[in-house]
Design a binder for these strands. Sequence first.
DNA 1: CGGAATGTTGATATGCCTCAACTAAAGTGG
DNA 2: CCACTTTAGTTGAGGCATATCAACATTCCG
Lengths: 243, 243
Amino acid sequence: MAAFHDLLIRKLQDHSELGAADLAAIRRLPASERTLRPNEDIVRQGDKPNVSVVVVEGTVARYHTLPTGRRQYLSMHIAGDLPDAQALFIEIMDHSVGTIDQATVALVPHSALLALFEERTATGFAIWRETLIDAAIFREAITNNSARPLRTRLAHFCCEQYYRARAVGLAKPGSCRLPLTQTQLGEMLGASLASIARAMQGLRKTRSMDLQGGELFVNDWSRLTELGDFNPSYLHLRKPSRL
Amino acid sequence: MAAFHDLLIRKLQDHSELGAADLAAIRRLPASERTLRPNEDIVRQGDKPNVSVVVVEGTVARYHTLPTGRRQYLSMHIAGDLPDAQALFIEIMDHSVGTIDQATVALVPHSALLALFEERTATGFAIWRETLIDAAIFREAITNNSARPLRTRLAHFCCEQYYRARAVGLAKPGSCRLPLTQTQLGEMLGASLASIARAMQGLRKTRSMDLQGGELFVNDWSRLTELGDFNPSYLHLRKPSRL
DNA sequence: CGGAATGTTGATATGCCTCAACTAAAGTGG
DNA sequence: CCACTTTAGTTGAGGCATATCAACATTCCG
């Protein structure tokens, strides 16, 4: 398993230019690792964390909890992602961060990150950029959940997960991990379990993708991007994956 | 009309602590002002802008354009807002920025902003924080448009606009500008014109709010926040408005 | 004053929800 | 290793919220 420093560096280099001094400074970041069970919270809505999370292994999600108890997932994160970088400058968490399957995360003290930004402005800018790409993904989620019919929405979501897994080298040829239950897909896409089940069957019938046992299989990428109205430009990667 | 420097400073001070040196540095920012007609684009999806926008007067929005031509509004911005700060570190625009009504904006060269961040780290952090609050508003929009019935969604949106207008001193007692047509409200909330019309009438009947002639009237704030399931904590303001 | 843009209202269609029963798969303890 | 329980997914019936289409009313504005 790659050290979290390497994961973070790889992630930042997907969109930013870093010099040797930046890389060295990042490598000096202190962190403690924790492995968590499925469906365990790392940070909760209302908390004031003083560490930031880097995903090392597994899948981590952010979500809102509504007064009714209903859960709305906001984003999914895999190795190399910083699912709560924004907590650095926003004191009180407006959402929770928790695991989906078993996951290992590195916890980096905010103080170390702030010191790093003072020392290496370029690194600060790279992580700033990372949080901005995060925001671009949120924007796309607004559009996806507001303006597309359910089957398209589901296809788009799968496209994004596969594309991002490819970008960080976490996908095998034609497949990647996606350990979400249909209930959770519903909580991500604003749909009921039953509707997700039917939308999924619709997609299966196109033979462009399948999802089973927490593994997403992509058989016809070009067809799937059509079905999902997917255009990866909002992910702002420097070297778009060849798919 | 306040100079854009004052608007920006006021905005940043809503959530960040700035020293005298920071204020002075911000006041030295160069900018050119432009006044635009309603429904005019400032930056378009695909552009690579080298200036950032500060809203001086009027209402400015960000939106996606789907292949079908359908428009999805992502956010609304009023005086003091930076609707495309993220373009600083994200080269290619993944969405457009345009006016709703007649608006005046200040255009600040990216180079000047980057130089400012190098010189005054605290100012950089304040604008970073600003972009993070932006992201928090996107998250809330995901939840609003995905997990709430239409009438609640509309009430929540109106709560947010009124609350933000209050926070920057742009609201009169009991009302603020909100120059959106019902068609645009639909494109914001992922709903059709007809449904917005009916949801609006439902809200009017509660006597908690009304929207007419581009002016939002709030008659019963506490009732409206209930109807809209609105909790302002996601806006991350230091001194929550007393309403 | 006439034309365009905006909002209202009704009728009908439909996508998705809810509820419910059932199947299948995955853990768990004897 | 099997019976039991739990969790996940499938399928059907019926209902509701919202979409679509269309006609009309209203306001804005040149």
